[in-house]
Design a protein around this nucleic acid. Structure first.
Length: 380
DNA sequence: CATGATGATTACGG
DNA sequence: CCGTAATCATCATG
């Protein structure tokens, strides 16, 4: 035990006394009659408290030899702090009294700060460097994704309800085919979002509750053992890290759910619907009447998209597919070509009386695509 | 159920 | 970013 005491005293000297900051133990030492022994005793008692389990300490009385020092009667500069509990001298003290005595001892603040400092240094040296947490790239990725997917972030102007309603209305109106599915998707997404947010809130609440709990606990304990603010800070950080890893799981599974939903509803390739007859008719009409240059401008695409109740990119897809497939096997498309050539011709004729040249819309003048209709093998 | 049609996606080049 | 070519996955039909 003596060794330990010396060591502690030495540590105390190293840790705090030499720097002479807060507690200024040097001056204290001067004031005290028998400084060395006093400190040694206090440290011993602290060690004893630390060693002993709480139950033991509370259950049985403390040994008789030391109370004199704690009683205060022996102190040169009696602050009156420890007066009450130790009045009897020979009276056995229970744990509460002991604690009180410790707390009120005039050396306590100085020792306490010294111990805090020692702890601080040792803890820092053990695991001080790796403390700064970089913002987890994984969680950032998930956050971005959720944001992009509309799960987190602002509730999309007036909420999903409005959007869903609008989509549903569009679905009810004539000719909007994707509307129904889209609104369904919206509804499901809103559901996911709701679950996500309520779970997130729960987690956050639990986290702050737990943090509060721990902080209260630490504050409570800080009266009997040295706990530096930094330590509390670290503890809170640890708790937050734990909870954020849980949050990450939540985010991950939410992302998964959204992806599944998306693949089921939005990935049109999975649930491909053919365009309706009228739409393909419009598209084919344009294609064959511009066969020499079947590249609709952006405006034309928009026009066609509107007429066919599809999107511009669908128009682009259609023309892309059409061009390549036509080019690949012109023969196969002759019939169709003639049909639409005739159709446009008839249209032209009916609109303008002087339509003697049905040929004009599809003249093989420019090189890109072969002659449209009446043609190589004259298969009209 | 095999097969062709068809809309969407991907890889690549300008 | 747009177009081509290849490819995928589904639809539609016999």
């Amino acid at each position: 035990m003596d060794d330990q005491t010396r060591m502690l005293a030495g540590l105390a000297g190293l840790g705090g006394l030499s720097q002479g900051d807060v507690g200024d133990p040097d001056s204290l030492r001067k004031q005290l009659g028998q400084p060395q022994q006093d400190i040694g005793d206090i440290l011993q008692q602290i060690m004893a408290i630390t060693d002993e389990s709480l139950d033991e300490a509370q259950a049985r009385c403390w040994p008789e030899e030391s109370p004199a020092h704690w009683g205060g009667s022996d102190d040169p500069a009696e602050g009156g702090g420890a007066g009450g509990g130790t009045a009897g001298g020979g009276l056995p003290l229970n744990f509460q009294h002991r604690k009180h005595a410790l707390n009120c001892h005039r050396m306590k603040p100085a020792l306490f700060s010294v111990l805090c400092e020692i702890k601080e240094k040792t803890v820092l040296s053990i695991r001080g460097i790796q403390d700064e947490d970089p913002p987890d790239p994984q969680i950032m990725r998930l956050d971005n994704m959720l944001l992009a997917e509309g799960v987190s972030g602002p509730e999309k102007g007036g909420g999903s309800a409005a959007a869903a309603a609008a989509a549903a209305a569009a679905g009810g109106s004539p000719g909007a085919d994707g509307g129904i599915e889209h609104s369904d998707y919206r509804a499901k997404l809103a559901q996911i979002r709701q679950i996500y947010h309520s779970e997130l809130e729960k987690y956050e609440q639990a986290c702050s509750e737990f943090t509060n709990h721990v902080m209260n606990l630490l504050r409570e304990q800080s009266r009997t053992r040295p706990i530096s603010p930094k330590e509390i800070e670290r503890m809170v950080a640890i708790i937050h890290r734990k909870f954020s890893s849980i949050q990450m799981q939540l985010k991950q599974s939410t992302c998964e759910a959204v992806m599944i939903l998306r693949s089921r509803f939005l990935d049109a390739r999975r649930k491909r619907r053919n365009f309706n007859k009228q739409a393909t008719e419009v598209l084919n009409e344009y294609f064959y009447s511009h066969l020499s240059n079947p590249y609709p401008s952006e405006e034309a695409k928009e026009e066609l998209a509107k007429k066919c109740a599809i999107t511009v990119s669908q128009v682009s897809n259609w023309f892309g597919n059409k061009r390549i497939r036509y080019k690949k096997n012109i023969g196969k498309f002759q019939e169709e070509a003639n049909l639409y050539a005739v159709k446009t011709a008839v249209d032209a004729a009916s609109v303008s009386a002087q339509a003697s040249q049905a040929n004009s819309p599809a003249t093989p003048t420019s090189g890109g695509y072969p002659a449209p209709c009446y043609t190589p093998d004259g298969r009209l």
